[in-house]
Design a protein around this nucleic acid. Structure first.
Lengths: 358, 358
DNA sequence: ACGGTCGCCTAAACCGGTTTGCTAAACCGG
DNA sequence: CCGGTTTAGCAAACCGGTTTAGGCGACCGT
């Protein structure tokens, strides 16, 4: 018949027990200098004895800050965590957040609705990755007055952003295989999150542009049938390469927009009896840790994934601390081609002539 | 001279603007049935026009729930995200959380203090992975009245837990290599998070026990010099194998407690001119996705990583919803050996005789 | 005309803290 | 002994919502 009144001790309980006011208790925790030393000590002792901890939510409410930053992803976390790229990005984010004493809250569509997830989230600011500008949630966030830093989406002028040189990186990759003599190419790309055609401004579009620029420069074109999209995972790469092959594509080089997909493609090539790089060259993108550890080590376009996460957080924190007066910064990080052993000169002969034999 | 009074519209603003009470506005959002339909519509229109969203923190405070679950890790997120195992585990956690409408908050030591991080965190419950029982934070969490589910630590009776059969899995792995004729073994283990000796109850200890049981059954023993610890990553595996080799160990089989480490070990073996599995067999633990994709595909002990995350969350949610009256459940998931191609019979001869030649 | 329902809406209390005046006592120099 | 300054602590307002307990008028049956 006694349902344990008030599970958790409140500040008033401590105050009563210690024979002081709530204010005193609050001071004992937050501004001990405003209390006689021994009073502060005594209050803390009572609090300890009662097992009292200030309720974090109540504290957030009065202080108007949560000491938490949100990581916003347009895709479900359950799919995004399977991409090693995201793991590395999160490392960077976590590093910067932890060292500044901020917690991390991952925000992804709840029951299909990113908006619903956003309105529940208690964060001081948001790092959004891969969220295209048009996305309605961006508007919602701005209305909520939350600072936001966009990663990998072309920037809106009034919030910070971190980008990489996607076009340049892709172009470098393509130029390299062109230099090796390759002209028959297959592009394996990352499917945009929203099923509704590639977002015109997305990563995929920018990298494709880079590839196309390089080929255009030597008078070649990349047709749509040479571009295969899929999810950014090893299995996605396997599937994409498989589909291309079934469609009759017989490239001498594969340009993948993600290392995970490149690794899948290599594996599927081997499965089909093709040697990498002797018969087919493969280039990835991202330079995830794994890229050096596969066999053969993957030629790929390096981007500073962890640093991207770190800088995004630092940009956000600078806005949080200096108020919105710091005008939004747009930072672009470099990419560079890393040549390893998954690429080689085009072989003089084709084992399986693509057209009529003889 | 007008610093934008009240950045964000409050419920009182909406009430005034719509000419109703705060209560009515609240009802318009939460219990429209208690209002005349057209009143509710009008209020919502006004709210919309003002760009009003209920403040999530205030809402949390009155409803006494945050709709958020915490994932507690004793290590910094910046190190833990580099382990593919954790990515897969998070996938499972995210899947179950998202489908129930819960958000995810990752809790890791802030500036070195897990306790500080915990007291800031606004969550309804906690899934703790790899937190040994003795950890003082467990006590803190209980005092805070937060439900908790422990993953991979031997259970305290009064909260739920998810475990796997570490001992059995390790024993199966060891028995298998014993059956292949191997007697010269190297164990590569996961270094416990806290630098202070292996926790006697941790995963590492349990798996080691399994290995030892199997070898004891054939009258062999695994000496301490045959056990090498390191961080659970590819590089950790490389380093561990390297160190063992420098110490003069010449095993014919390597038992690793993590696939990432096993992959690193394989790579380092190849680096040193040894063939896997012809000259040295390698067994992993976990069966991460990558295990099928390396060359050769890795023989390993499978554990249902994603399901572990899912079930932990479901256990937690059932406590959250049925109150603490549901008595804590302890669930143990199965492990099983998956034989792939990184293991083979011990070769009859040693290329490099370990002792005096001839 | 009257008591009883019902439908719609509100005032006030509450969630659990922090913060802003303010008061009363102690201290201090002259 | 007196006016002024510190010091220690308090009451009350506030953060931004939700929820309880009614109030009030319209409608209804008699």
């Amino acid at each position: 018949m006694d349902p344990v009144r008030s599970q958790r001790p409140r500040i008033a309980d401590v105050a009563r027990e210690a024979g002081v006011s709530k204010t005193a208790v609050s001071f004992a925790f937050n501004r001990p200098d405003r209390l006689a030393p021994e009073t502060a000590t005594r209050i803390r002792a009572v609090a300890d004895h009662l097992g009292y901890r200030p309720h974090p939510v109540a504290r957030m409410l009065t202080q108007r800050q949560t000491m938490t930053i949100g990581v916003l992803t347009p895709q479900a976390l359950s799919v995004i965590f399977s991409n090693p790229f995201f793991g590395a990005f999160s490392e960077g984010v976590a590093l910067a957040a932890e060292e500044s004493g901020y917690g991390l809250h991952f925000i992804s569509p709840l029951q299909g609705s990113l908006a619903r997830a956003m309105s529940r989230a208690t964060v001081d600011g948001v790092v959004a990755i891969g969220l295209s500008d048009g996305h309605p949630e961006v508007e919602q966030i701005r209305q909520a007055g939350l600072p936001i830093v966009m990663v990998d989406s072309s920037a809106l002028p009034d919030h910070g952003s971190i980008e990489i040189d996607d076009v340049g990186g892709a172009r470098a990759a393509a130029e390299y295989v062109i230099g090796l003599g390759h002209r028959d190419i297959l592009v394996i790309g990352v499917e945009p999150p929203a099923p509704g055609g590639p977002d015109p401004d997305g990563v995929t579009a920018r990298r494709l542009l880079g590839y196309r620029q390089a080929f255009a420069a030597v008078g070649a074109a990349i047709g749509d049938e040479q571009v295969m999209l899929g999810p950014a995972s090893i299995d996605g790469g396997i599937a994409a390469l498989g589909r291309a092959w079934e469609n009759g594509q017989r490239p001498t080089a594969v340009l993948a927009m993600s290392d995970a997909m490149a690794i899948g493609a290599m594996q599927e090539l081997r499965e089909r009896g093709l040697e990498v790089p002797a018969e087919v060259s493969v280039v990835g993108f991202d330079d995830i840790d794994l890229a050096t550890h596969v066999d053969p080590p993957l030629t790929t376009v390096h981007q500073p994934i962890r640093r991207k996460g770190e800088e995004a957080v630092r940009l956000l924190l600078s806005v949080l601390e200096h108020g919105a007066r710091a005008k939004p910064e747009h930072r672009r990080l470099e990419t560079r081609l890393i040549v390893r052993r998954s690429t080689g000169p085009v072989s003089g002969h084709r084992r399986v002539p693509p057209e009529r034999p003889g």
